[in-house]
Simulated scan of single mutants.
Amino acid sequence: MQQIADHIARSQPSPIEALPTIDRDIRPVKWRLWHGRVDRAIRDLERLLAKVQGSRHVSEFSIARLHSLGVQLLTYIRSNRGAIVDYGKRYRAGSALPRPSPSRQ
Protein backbone atom coordinates (compact mmCIF):
# COMPACT_ATOMS: atom_id res chain seq x y z
CA MET A 1 0.00 0.00 0.00
CA GLN A 2 2.80 2.38 0.89
CA GLN A 3 4.51 1.88 -2.47
CA ILE A 4 1.31 2.53 -4.40
CA ALA A 5 0.54 5.60 -2.31
CA ASP A 6 4.07 6.93 -2.86
CA HIS A 7 3.64 6.41 -6.61
CA ILE A 8 0.31 8.26 -6.60
CA ALA A 9 1.81 11.17 -4.66
CA ARG A 10 4.83 11.39 -7.02
CA SER A 11 2.78 11.10 -10.19
CA GLN A 12 0.58 14.14 -9.52
CA PRO A 13 1.35 17.18 -11.68
CA SER A 14 0.67 19.51 -8.79
CA PRO A 15 0.96 18.84 -5.04
CA ILE A 16 -2.41 20.55 -4.56
CA GLU A 17 -4.21 17.98 -6.71
CA ALA A 18 -5.53 14.54 -5.81
CA LEU A 19 -4.32 12.96 -2.61
CA PRO A 20 -1.35 15.00 -1.42
CA THR A 21 -1.22 13.23 1.92
CA ILE A 22 -2.17 9.66 0.97
CA ASP A 23 1.40 8.41 1.38
CA ARG A 24 1.62 10.07 4.80
CA ASP A 25 -1.79 8.71 5.86
CA ILE A 26 -0.62 5.11 5.62
CA ARG A 27 2.38 5.52 7.95
CA PRO A 28 0.29 6.10 11.11
CA VAL A 29 -1.73 2.96 10.38
CA LYS A 30 1.47 0.93 10.19
CA TRP A 31 2.83 2.55 13.38
CA ARG A 32 -0.40 1.90 15.29
CA LEU A 33 -0.42 -1.74 14.26
CA TRP A 34 3.22 -2.13 15.30
CA HIS A 35 2.40 -0.64 18.70
CA GLY A 36 -0.76 -2.65 19.30
CA ARG A 37 -3.21 0.21 18.84
CA VAL A 38 -5.53 -1.86 16.71
CA ASP A 39 -8.79 0.07 17.17
CA ARG A 40 -7.16 3.35 16.18
CA ALA A 41 -5.46 1.67 13.20
CA ILE A 42 -8.87 0.40 12.04
CA ARG A 43 -10.41 3.88 12.31
CA ASP A 44 -7.48 5.46 10.45
CA LEU A 45 -7.60 2.81 7.74
CA GLU A 46 -11.36 3.26 7.32
CA ARG A 47 -10.84 7.01 6.95
CA LEU A 48 -8.06 6.42 4.43
CA LEU A 49 -10.23 4.06 2.39
CA ALA A 50 -13.05 6.62 2.31
CA LYS A 51 -10.58 9.22 1.04
CA VAL A 52 -9.26 6.82 -1.60
CA GLN A 53 -12.77 5.86 -2.72
CA GLY A 54 -13.61 9.52 -3.30
CA SER A 55 -10.57 10.05 -5.54
CA ARG A 56 -11.52 9.41 -9.13
CA HIS A 57 -9.19 11.92 -10.80
CA VAL A 58 -6.08 9.82 -10.15
CA SER A 59 -5.06 6.79 -12.19
CA GLU A 60 -8.00 4.42 -11.86
CA PHE A 61 -5.75 1.36 -11.65
CA SER A 62 -3.62 2.78 -8.83
CA ILE A 63 -6.65 3.88 -6.83
CA ALA A 64 -8.44 0.57 -7.39
CA ARG A 65 -5.36 -1.40 -6.33
CA LEU A 66 -4.77 0.77 -3.27
CA HIS A 67 -8.42 0.43 -2.25
CA SER A 68 -8.38 -3.34 -2.79
CA LEU A 69 -5.26 -3.79 -0.67
CA GLY A 70 -6.68 -1.52 2.01
CA VAL A 71 -9.91 -3.51 2.22
CA GLN A 72 -7.92 -6.75 2.45
CA LEU A 73 -5.77 -5.30 5.24
CA LEU A 74 -8.82 -4.02 7.09
CA THR A 75 -10.47 -7.45 6.89
CA TYR A 76 -7.27 -9.10 8.16
CA ILE A 77 -6.93 -6.68 11.07
CA ARG A 78 -10.56 -7.10 12.11
CA SER A 79 -10.35 -10.89 11.85
CA ASN A 80 -7.09 -11.11 13.83
CA ARG A 81 -7.60 -8.23 16.26
CA GLY A 82 -6.84 -10.33 19.33
CA ALA A 83 -3.70 -11.87 17.88
CA ILE A 84 -1.94 -8.68 16.79
CA VAL A 85 1.22 -8.32 18.86
CA ASP A 86 2.40 -5.02 20.33
CA TYR A 87 5.94 -5.22 18.97
CA GLY A 88 6.82 -1.78 20.36
CA LYS A 89 6.04 -2.95 23.90
CA ARG A 90 7.88 -6.21 23.32
CA TYR A 91 10.92 -4.31 22.02
CA ARG A 92 10.93 -1.88 24.96
CA ALA A 93 10.73 -4.82 27.38
CA GLY A 94 13.89 -6.24 25.84
CA SER A 95 12.21 -9.18 24.17
CA ALA A 96 13.71 -10.09 20.85
CA LEU A 97 11.51 -10.11 17.81
CA PRO A 98 10.74 -13.58 16.51
CA ARG A 99 13.30 -14.82 14.04
CA PRO A 100 12.48 -17.04 11.12
CA SER A 101 13.31 -20.65 11.74
CA PRO A 102 16.23 -22.04 9.72
CA SER A 103 15.17 -24.04 6.71
CA ARG A 104 15.86 -27.73 6.63
CA GLN A 105 18.23 -29.01 4.02
Rank of each mutant, 00 (worst) to 15 (best):
residue 84 I to K: 08
residue 60 E to T: 13
residue 52 V to A: 14
residue 43 R to I: 14
residue 28 P to C: 12
residue 39 D to L: 12
residue 33 L to M: 11
residue 39 D to P: 07
residue 75 T to L: 06
residue 54 G to Q: 11
residue 75 T to A: 14
residue 79 S to P: 00
residue 50 A to T: 04
residue 83 A to E: 10
residue 78 R to I: 03
residue 33 L to V: 14
residue 46 E to S: 10
residue 66 L to T: 08
residue 77 I to P: 01
residue 70 G to Y: 02
residue 77 I to R: 04
residue 34 W to T: 10
residue 64 A to Y: 01
residue 63 I to Y: 04
residue 58 V to A: 14
residue 28 P to S: 09
residue 39 D to Q: 14
residue 74 L to N: 03
residue 64 A to Q: 11
residue 81 R to D: 01
residue 68 S to R: 06
residue 52 V to M: 05
residue 35 H to A: 15
residue 44 D to I: 01
residue 70 G to D: 04
residue 73 L to Q: 06
residue 33 L to K: 08
residue 83 A to R: 13
residue 58 V to D: 12
residue 85 V to T: 15
residue 60 E to D: 13
residue 50 A to Q: 07
residue 40 R to T: 15
residue 42 I to L: 14
residue 45 L to F: 02
residue 32 R to N: 15
residue 73 L to E: 03
residue 44 D to E: 13
residue 59 S to A: 13
residue 59 S to E: 10
residue 37 R to S: 14
residue 74 L to A: 05
residue 64 A to R: 08
residue 53 Q to Y: 06
residue 38 V to I: 15
residue 38 V to C: 05
residue 79 S to R: 10
residue 28 P to L: 10
residue 80 N to Q: 06
residue 60 E to C: 01
residue 34 W to I: 10
residue 42 I to Y: 04
residue 71 V to S: 03
residue 57 H to W: 07
residue 70 G to L: 03
residue 65 R to Y: 11
residue 51 K to P: 00
residue 78 R to H: 05
residue 57 H to K: 12
residue 42 I to F: 07
residue 53 Q to G: 07
residue 46 E to G: 04
residue 67 H to N: 08
residue 39 D to S: 15
residue 42 I to S: 09
residue 75 T to N: 11
residue 45 L to P: 01
residue 58 V to P: 00
residue 40 R to V: 15
residue 41 A to Q: 06
residue 76 Y to P: 00
residue 74 L to Q: 06
residue 46 E to I: 03
residue 77 I to Y: 02
residue 52 V to S: 01
residue 36 G to H: 11
residue 37 R to E: 15
residue 73 L to G: 03
residue 37 R to W: 06
residue 29 V to K: 04
residue 38 V to W: 02
residue 85 V to H: 05
residue 31 W to N: 06
residue 85 V to A: 09
residue 31 W to M: 11
residue 41 A to D: 05
residue 55 S to Q: 14
residue 47 R to L: 06
residue 30 K to C: 05
residue 61 F to M: 08
residue 58 V to Y: 08
residue 45 L to S: 07
residue 69 L to K: 05
residue 62 S to M: 13
residue 71 V to N: 07
residue 43 R to M: 10
residue 55 S to N: 09
residue 83 A to W: 02
residue 76 Y to V: 03
residue 68 S to K: 05
residue 68 S to D: 08
residue 82 G to S: 13
residue 45 L to A: 09
residue 54 G to M: 05
residue 81 R to N: 02
residue 49 L to G: 03
residue 32 R to V: 06
residue 65 R to K: 14
residue 53 Q to R: 13
residue 43 R to Y: 05
residue 72 Q to G: 02
residue 77 I to N: 04
residue 48 L to M: 15
residue 56 R to A: 04
residue 35 H to I: 14
residue 39 D to M: 10
residue 36 G to T: 07
residue 61 F to K: 11
residue 60 E to A: 15
residue 76 Y to A: 12
